[in-house]
């Protein structure tokens, strides 16, 4: 019972991190590892700058 509650909370936390982009860098690292194993990934700092600037192009919010 306690275990399943903990699991649920963990899932919720992961969802929240995913939704907010808190785990964007970790996902990016995993993506680099899976798809282009040899190239050196960006640092957290550099990645976040790029990610944030990219995220804000185009229509993102509505009325």
């Amino acid at each position: 019972m306690m275990k399943s509650i903990r699991l649920k909370l963990q899932q919720l936390w992961h969802g929240l991190r995913r939704l907010s982009g808190d785990d964007a860098y970790e996902r990016y690292l995993a993506h680099c590892l899976a798809h282009h194993g040899e190239s050196t990934p960006l640092t957290r700092d550099a990645f976040f700058k790029q990610w944030q600037d990219e995220k804000w192009k185009g229509v993102k919010r509505c009325c």
Partner: peptide
Amino acid sequence: RNFRPGRVL
């Protein structure tokens, strides 16, 4: 951006 990059939450 600067203090804790990427720590959105």
